[in-house]
Design a protein around this nucleic acid. Structure first.
Lengths: 344, 344
DNA sequence: ATGAAAGCGCTAACAA
DNA sequence: TTGTTAGCGCTTTCAT
């Protein structure tokens, strides 16, 4: 069945497309009779407006593009879900792309998305990305861009991020609050900045509680795998004065730390308390369940989507557009690995 | 900066848009001089074709719509990733929607996607969905639809599914091959059919190995949570003759079974061997690591995407379109919970 | 209350 | 080799 157009209806009724168009969107000056006839014909012919034609005419696509490093990732699934929910509620659709953490692919997909005619772009930078010219370029074409999670201060754009500093601070304070005085940190790399902020939060918490910063208690994970977590934990426990608590930059690292500790015969949390970051579902299922700091993925997605849609609308109405940085708090989820009672 | 159009270039050069259009897509009959001039002007003005105009003209959007019950789900993430990879390689974009397992929302989003003008639709039916008229309707408008994972024989369309029967058969045979003779199954509900097929595979494996089907060894999970898995496992172990192996319809159920078994002092796999379905990442991290049957999510996404794109092209070229049902095998991942050596 | 016509930006058959 | 023209399907101003 061929798609019905306005002209099909017009011809069937012996009137013009203009009249049909008006009847369909109940314009004031239209006779009840023609309106009925048009509606009936539209129904009968299964008429639906051609979206491309409408959008070409109105110069608005009602589609936003999203670029994440990796679709298959619990955090990004959450974010995407938040983005989609907000966008759909406002009649927008979401086109999804992944950069696979590659700078070159990020450039390619952002350009493809622009070429597809999206009204705006939501981007989480890849780990490889240090320059943001490809995004500045898009902005130069009046395409609003909002960054989330992994962002860059280089780009003059709205952004939504987790409060990693607060997360790191809370995790460390929590361990100290348990009475631990030798708190180690398995940190991430300086770039991207997210994990660096967690490290700063760790340092700030030590300072705030009057504990010394001991460089031998800080090891830098470059792979951020559980194997690395296990290896570094063995290294920490081999110190003359081993730590009595470990804050891992990520749950993968924390899981590795847990298995290493168990293997070394250390009790968790009695001998060594442990906390991770991200709050993967696994954390709750391990033995003991691992405490973790939950990132507000869904909320980040919603917020980013809201900011972008606002900018799209502001742009269309030629209103001034002021960028906003939203920092959403991470939430401490205490479980047995840093259990309050057992740990003291 | 306003978007440059063909006319901008044409005016700047004192030629017509047709010539510009041709120069830009290196048509044969075009003078080297004008071609250079056009290219230079296009570059200077940052010209990019307006996607909506191109697509309206060519009646092809190069966008496909995807409907999944839930974006935040490891299996669907895999599928989506496969879909996106294939689509992007062919210059198509992917619009993502979720039905939240609700029939009404599924209808709404499929219609929204049609209204957005996608070239085709990839749908995983919600658990609530029993009727498929909303999809037949789309097909009637020449919109190709390909189902995946949760499909319906009611719809005359291509489909891509996991071989759940084979997965259930393999899991059960594996347990029997370990020497187990009292194999229980924590099954799913009859609808959707996926888990029913696993159950049928279980039954077939019993029969194939000459073991009796014992109804008291089969319990139906309606919530499919780990709490339910734990409760049913306690129920199984309270039987006069408790099972020596359990095949759980899902990893969540298997995880619950594992914790119940440990709590009851049963050794896994020595006393009771255990296997789940889906191969969640957690499985490998638990103690003992749980064997599971992996669903080929990424491959399903790729295949579904390929089938849909093929149908879109066939439709455009008015070629006959023959539907295809692709059944992809599930893969047994043996771990310690059904460890070959320890279990005998 | 309705029609005629222009135009969104692009492509392509036909002319010259 | 380039221009002219028509048209994709729709909206909207201007005229009637």
């Amino acid at each position: 069945m061929k798609r019905a157009t306005l002209r099909d209806i017009a011809q069937a009724l012996g009137i013009t497309v203009a009249t049909v168009s008006r009847a369909l969107k109940n314009y004031p000056d239209i006779s009840a009779a023609t309106k009925q006839a048009v509606l009936a014909a539209a129904e009968r012919l299964h008429y639906a407006p051609h979206p491309l034609a409408v959008k070409l005419r109105q110069q608005a696509y009602k589609v936003i593009g999203v670029v994440v490093p990796d679709i298959v990732h619990p955090f990004f699934s959450d974010v995407i879900s938040g983005i989609v929910d907000v966008a759909e509620a406002q009649g927008y659709h979401v086109i999804l792309s992944q950069s696979n953490e590659q700078y070159a692919k990020e450039i390619r997909v952002t350009q493809m998305l622009q070429a597809t005619g999206v009204d705006g772009l939501l981007v989480c930078l890849s780990n490889e990305t240090t320059r943001v010219d490809h995004l500045r370029e898009l902005q130069a074409y009046d395409l609003p861009v909002v960054l989330f999670d992994k962002v860059s201060p280089e780009l003059d754009a709205s952004a939504v991020v987790t409060n990693d500093f607060q997360g790191g601070y809370d995790a460390t304070s929590h361990l100290i609050g348990l009475g631990r005085r030798r708190v180690a940190h398995l940190k991430g790399t300086p770039h991207p900045q997210n994990t660096q902020r967690r490290y700063e939060g760790y340092q700030a918490a030590l300072a705030a509680h009057g504990l010394p910063f001991r460089p031998e208690y800080v090891l830098e994970c470059t792979l951020v795998t559980h194997e690395e977590g296990a290896a570094f934990t063995r290294q920490l426990m081999a110190l003359p004065e081993p730590p009595d608590a470990i804050f891992a930059v990520t749950d993968a690292v924390a899981i590795g730390a847990l298995s290493a500790l168990k293997q070394l015969g250390q009790r968790v949390p009695e001998d060594v308390a442990l906390i991770g970051f991200s709050d993967w579902e696994v954390c709750a299922l391990l033995d003991p369940p691992i405490s973790s700091v939950a990132q507000p993925g869904y909320a980040i997605g919603r917020r980013a989507s809201e900011l972008l849609l606002r900018e799209i609308i502001a742009l269309r109405e030629e209103q001034p557009l002021v960028h906003e940085l939203a920092v959403l708090d991470a939430e401490l989820r205490v479980r047995a690995s840093s259990g309050g009672s057992a740990g003291l």
